[in-house]
Design a binder for these strands. Structure first.
Length: 551
RNA sequence: GCCCUGGUAGCUCAGUUGGAAGAGCAGCGGGUUUCUACCCCGCAGGUCGCGGGUUCGAAUCCCGCCCAAGGCUCCA
């Protein structure tokens, strides 16, 4: 790897100057091309140690570096306050192309950073009392993509969904169904949505509304998730915590450790002692549990099954984090191994008007409706565009538009174009020969170099995204790659075409391999994000129709 | 009042360990119609919410404040 080579060289130069190089030498690809291909802040970081000013030190370091005659390096310059900038020949990028082709779609960007570690990602976990709405979609897609990202980095991942299938809200749900079945309005505080009316109609007269409704809601949720390609390894039932005694056991354990006390007829958790801002009730004065109690048992159980836990919660649950972390610490778990990611709210817009998500109003944007309207690919990609830390506006019209301002279309189209090149080349009698025989040094066009540079960044971006638990970074990169593909494809004066009279067979081969490497980057990344990488953007009928138009 | 998340170009948003302010869209100016697809290139556009502090260096770290969304039940 080029970075390692440069870091080693910098370390050697520092040592030769009698300095101790920092453990991780700063080295990055500057945004501006005239700052070189790679830039290091080594002189800035060690100037104090050297007792001199950064630029003067940089001069000495550069002299050392130049005496090393580094491979690929064409020039070394000092810039700004004392940055050392390396300008490389393009030769290093051809190695990048070969590596990408070698690892292929399956392993592009994969690493063993977290090999041997287990992690549990819990997401969705909506009450089984109704359909999933578009707001749930963000957490669902984020959780699934994050799980994929963690697998990418070597973790053994469990995707898990928790079912709150006991407690007050289940009864309220059942009562609401029963009321609608009887032709009445649900009682105060009941579920008012249109789906209750519809489901009550479906419901046979001789069944237990709670059990029937539970099964109905669960099936509905599973179907919506399946339409997005989301499947869980574990569906964990809250009831099972009661029936197998885990709930009592964790409560008992808290009592043994004197983490609870009785007051006003209720049982309280001393969560204040572990960072919460107030103590919490575990057992109410009427003897029933609060929702927190089984949840504590549940998370404790998850810790027995995985080394690290990730929870995806909605913004309305953020206040719940300190008490859960407190409870985990009380039970002897490492609170820092519980990572709770909070998804901020998502606003759905259609034709410039907000589509409400509220279950209460009956004006629900169901997740299943959303997927039906814009498709699974656009749904997933759009949700993943932004950091979950910021609120999102989901533009339904934009998500289906076939134009470049639609990032989904733009990115998938890049893949389709690359596939089309290969097909067209084959039709013209140009088949790809083995890579080993290709002369990649013929790739000299600026757009070709830029494409390779972008491709090179991919694995690093994926690594950081996994560490930061930020799938949107991968999305940002794959958009950059798509952009680089389009720019190459559309270069002025047909300078980068694969097929053409003025293109030598050797150059065509090199370009076919460039296209293949870029395609691997796109297909691999999109695939991991759960978005398809199509060979064509248009249906057969649409293509036929277009053929007719051009006659 | 407390907790949490945002505040970066006209708009929507990126911006790992502090290191040389970014993309897309919209605007303006050129070019292109293909390996079929409103595409490409260029230009312009910024007190990184405000004020302090730490540092050789802060959008990034610390303190205070302002604005917006959400949460602060013996609800789930």
């Amino acid at each position: 790897m080029i970075q390692q080579q440069l870091r080693d060289a910098l370390t050697a130069a520092a040592t030769a100057e009698g300095l101790t190089a920092p453990g991780e030498i700063g080295l990055e690809q500057p945004a501006k091309r005239d700052h070189g291909d790679w830039s290091s802040n080594l002189a800035l970081a060690t100037s104090k140690q050297a007792g001199t000013n950064p630029r003067e030190l940089a001069g000495r370091l550069v002299a050392q570096l130049e005496s090393q005659n580094l491979a690929h390096v064409e020039a070394i310059e000092i810039a700004g306050p004392g940055f050392i900038n390396f300008t490389l020949s393009n030769s290093w990028l051809f190695d990048v192309l070969r590596e990408v082709v070698e690892v292929g779609v399956e392993n592009f960007g994969a690493s063993d950073t977290n090999a041997g570690k287990t992690i549990n990602v819990e997401f969705v976990s909506a009450n089984p009392t109704g359909p999933l709405h578009a707001g749930h979609g963000r957490g669902a897609v984020f959780g699934d993509a994050l799980a994929a990202l963690l697998e990418w980095s070597g973790y053994e991942v469990t995707r898990e969904c928790y079912l709150n299938d006991r407690g007050v809200q289940m009864q309220t749900f059942a009562d609401s169904l029963a009321a609608r079945k009887a032709g009445d309005e649900p009682a105060e505080g009941g579920y008012m949505g249109q789906y209750i009316i519809d489901w009550a109609e479906e419901m046979p007269g001789d069944v237990d509304p709670l059990e029937w409704g539970y099964a109905r809601a669960l099936e509905d949720q599973k179907q919506a998730l399946a339409s997005l390609g989301i499947e869980f390894d574990v569906w964990f039932s809250e009831r099972s915590l009661v029936s197998d005694g885990k709930l009592d056991a964790s409560l008992e354990r808290l009592k043994e450790r004197e983490m609870v006390y009785e007051d006003d007829g209720a049982t309280w958790l001393r969560s204040t002692d572990f960072g919460d801002d107030k103590d919490r009730v575990l057992v109410k004065s009427d003897g029933s549990f609060t929702y927190l109690t089984p949840d504590i048992a549940y998370h404790h159980d998850k810790f027995s099954r995985a080394e690290e836990l990730v929870n995806i919660w909605g913004a309305d649950h953020h206040g719940y984090v300190p008490r859960m972390k407190a409870a985990m610490e009380m039970l002897g778990n490492d609170r820092d191994k519980l990572d709770v990611r909070i998804t901020q709210m998502v606003k759905m817009m259609r034709n410039g008007e907000e589509v409400k998500l509220s279950k209460r109003t009956g004006e629900i944007e169901l997740l299943s409706d959303l997927v039906a309207e814009v498709g699974a690919d656009a749904t997933r990609f759009t949700y993943l565009l932004q950091s979950i830390d910021s609120q999102q506006t989901f533009d339904l019209a934009l998500a289906v538009s076939q134009a470049k301002d639609n990032p989904v279309f733009f990115t998938q189209y890049a893949h389709a174009r690359l596939q089309r090149i290969r097909t067209k080349a084959a039709e013209a009698g140009i088949e790809r020969a083995p890579l080993a025989d290709a002369d990649l040094t013929l790739l000299t066009h600026p757009t070709e170099i830029e494409l390779l540079r972008t491709l090179f960044r991919g694995p690093d971006v994926i690594e950081v995204a996994a560490r930061e638990r930020a799938p949107h970074r991968v999305v940002g990169w794959v958009r950059d790659l798509a952009s680089a593909v389009h720019t190459w494809y559309q270069a002025p004066n047909k300078e980068t075409r694969v097929i053409g009279d003025h293109v030598s067979p050797e150059l065509a081969q090199a370009r076919l391999w460039l296209a293949e490497a870029a395609r691997i980057g796109l297909a691999s990344t999109l695939g991991r994000l759960g978005v398809s990488a199509p060979d064509s953007m248009w249906s057969d009928e649409a293509e036929a129709a277009m053929g007719d138009d051009s006659e």
